[in-house]
Design a protein around this nucleic acid. Structure first.
Lengths: 222, 222
DNA sequence: AGCAGTTTGTAACGATTTGTATCGAAGCCA
DNA sequence: TGGCTTCGATACAAATCGTTACAAACTGCT
């Protein structure tokens, strides 16, 4: 749900649990839109595989990436009857559809209903974290935080060093963090020169020193 | 609910509706804390009168005001078992307590349950708006947005010019918008010199030109 | 493989925002 | 009332971040 990547809400919605409900599976090609701002909300979606991007745009073109949706995340929570963000896929993505009424009427499917509620609450909490990031952290801290959060969320702890795939562009990261692409680049370069990360091609980052990264995320250094 | 002032969720929870349920009423003196970060979440609260402040603090002291809670707002939504913000009163405040289980178990009080869900969803939507503000708006735009939103939320349309009470300090506003107190002062002064607002003492602002204010909030003017 | 278009990286410059210092006004307590 | 403390306003210096410009790398296409 307009999930900031900060705290995915993956745990409670194991794919198996949903599969057991035979929820219809939907496929989204890279670059395809799931919905636009203003579209009616008929379904919520659970990401099964892939990554989506939730964005909002100002009249003058300024853009804010609200969240990246990773597997397990629930997106499309309605406040009124229409979506308030655009949603498109950063890579090929599969998702389950859940009729909206499950969220608002608990009688149909109480278990799924409470799972959705819990996801919405998680979402609120994650967004609060993101407030602190947007409002009070410096550019280097934001970039370090971003990588840290991504690592917690999708890092593969079985390999060393941990390698992160970055399916989003630099400008997506910039619009997520409230920076420009150049600043994102500079901060990544600084982390590379400090030998905290290694940049493996354009969409892959290896985290060499996880604790140093975490320190910079909280401003304990520099 | 950690309500950004952007879109209060007042409408659905008319005080009368709650009064009819004989929810216990709680009183909070100015400056008193309702809860702290880390406290167990046992209840949600609906603001009846007054204004509260939800804050979060970094180890090094940097502070982010997550939201101001105005009458009709619901605060205290739990993500895990503990609160993730501090909450204190900016002026004497009255609020209704709602046991937490009403949110998570729909069987006890289905109507109130769905009201809470709706509030949580509104909250998510309001926070998304705030993302755009924190991430992409300039300091003058932020201050103009703040006043505009406050005007929509609590403005008294029956009088002209509209007078806003500001129960929060300049540094509260700064920490809400991701600015410093100095910048907030400077932006307010600029609005005053442009004769868009009049500053009536320290905690009262008269909005002289609402449409000019709205324009500056969206960056259509300086 | 080669070309064109897009995205990313780097650097220099400049604007906005912040920090520091100072002063004044308002609230508080004896 | 007087002195103390807190908060807000203003000015100037400093730093961060954004803008511009251009080169390099990558992608998709033929």
């Amino acid at each position: 749900m307009y999930v900031t990547i900060s705290h995915g809400n993956a745990q409670p919605f194991a794919p198996s649990k949903l599969a057991a409900r035979k929820t219809p599976l939907k496929t989204l090609k890279k670059g395809a839109y799931l919905y636009f701002e203003g579209d009616d909300v008929t379904h919520l979606f659970i990401i099964e595989t892939g990554v989506v991007r939730l964005t909002r745009v100002l009249e003058d073109g300024r853009r804010q990436v609200i969240a990246f949706g990773y597997p397990g995340d629930i997106i499309g929570f309605p406040a009124q009857d229409t979506h308030h963000t655009d949603c498109d896929a950063l890579c090929d993505t599969k998702l389950c559809s859940i009729p909206r009424k499950v969220l608002e009427d608990s009688s149909a499917d109480p278990d799924l209903h409470s799972v959705l509620i819990q996801a919405a609450l998680q979402e609120i909490s994650a967004m609060q974290d993101h407030f602190m990031m947007l409002g009070r952290k410096s550019a280097p801290e934001k970039v370090a935080s971003f990588l840290t959060v991504l690592l917690e969320r999708i890092g593969d702890t079985s390999v060393e060093p941990q390698v992160l795939a970055l399916p989003m562009s630099r400008s997506d990261i910039a619009d997520f963090l409230g920076l420009t692409t150049e600043t994102v680049c500079r901060c990544l370069t600084a982390l590379r020169k400090a030998e905290i990360i290694r940049i493996d091609g354009i969409s892959k980052v290896a985290v060499l020193d996880q604790s140093a990264l975490a320190q910079r995320a909280d401003g304990q250094l520099n």
